[in-house]
Nucleic acid binder design. Structure first.
Length: 194
DNA sequence: CAGATGATGTTCT
DNA sequence: GAACATCATCTGC
């Protein structure tokens, strides 16, 4: 994926990433998933980690677009963002769910799930779940998503995308913004559909 | 199905 | 001390 693809505002990038494929090559094997749910975060609204300016944790959000912002959530889970916007703007897109595409056995092993219908649906449903399935953690902080072992690809066969927007999940501020995007009617999205 | 709750560590006030 | 961009598991419909 060319750098140019990522260089736009978080809301626009959140829509554009729906249907793209996230790949991670590790010594254990390769996993890949189609992005079916995203959320936009920008320094101009109070729900964003970048709202109060750069800190050691969020500094990559203020750098150039197309790099990974990975943070530790609730003492248990890793969450992954794609940095958006121009350098100096704290903007990023949270990946909330993937449709598993490749390396399903490795994903199931990392998640401790069986590869039956129920396990398959839960493999990458939720921001903490998809990072566990893909083997994403603090080592991926700042990773270049345009080229490298963790990267974003355009879909091989771009399907017609019906994208629905709604309020973001799990936040207490700026709840009115419809900055969550899902691939409509996709069974792998987390939470509610809209 | 919906709603409540505990586990757990980092960051900020 | 509180808040937190979560998840699995429990309860009661």
């Amino acid at each position: 994926m060319a750098r140019h693809f990522f260089e736009r505002g978080a809301v626009e990038l959140a829509r554009a990433l729906i249907g793209c494929v996230l790949v991670h090559e590790t010594p254990e094997g390769t996993t890949a998933g189609r992005i079916v749910e995203t959320e936009a975060y920008d320094q101009g609204e109070p729900a964003s980690h970048s709202h109060r300016g750069p800190t050691p944790r969020n500094q990559v959000m203020f750098g150039p677009a197309g790099f990974a912002y990975v943070y530790f959530s609730y003492g248990m889970h890793w969450c992954m963002n794609v940095v958006a916007g121009r350098e100096g703007r704290g903007a990023a897109v949270l990946l909330r769910a993937l449709e598993p595409v490749d390396g399903l056995a490795l994903m199931a092993q990392r998640r401790g799930l069986a590869l039956d219908a129920a396990g398959l649906r839960r493999l990458c449903r939720g921001p903490g779940c998809l990072t566990q399935a893909m083997g994403i953690d603090q080592r991926c902080y700042g990773a270049d998503l345009a080229a490298g072992p963790l990267r974003v690809l355009l879909p091989e066969a771009p399907s017609r995308r019906r994208i629905a927007a709604g309020p973001r999940i799990g936040i207490s501020k700026a709840q009115e913004l419809p900055w969550r995007f899902v691939l409509a009617d996709n069974p792998f999205v987390s939470g509610r559909r809209a």
